[in-house]
Amino acid sequence: MEIGEKTVRNIAELAQLTFDESHLATMQSSMGDILNLVEQMQEVDTDGVEPMSNPLDATQRLREDVVSEPDQREVFQRLAPETLEGLYLVPRVIE
């Protein structure tokens, strides 16, 4: 399957990745290779086959509605690149 450069750029946008020109070309060709491999499954007749999103034939267990998590902000924020007054900081967001 051929995958266009524009598509690769668009997908990179969705995935929030950035490539310089040479890497973009490499990515484009290797994505094409992988999609060619994947393409083989198109020959399987899957009419009426229920998709299988999980190997477990089970249903969800539910949790009691209790507050079990204490405030661990200091513990978590020690791992953060940048915080101020308990907030995580990111470059200014313009809505």
């Binding site: 994947v38 499954m41 198109q42 399987v44 899957t46 086959v49 229920e50 998709p51 299988m52």
Partner: peptide, 9 residues
């Protein structure tokens, strides 16, 4: 979706 169907098979 196709892959999940193949997975079922």
């Amino acid at each position: 979706r196709k892959a999940q169907q193949v997975r079922r098979l």
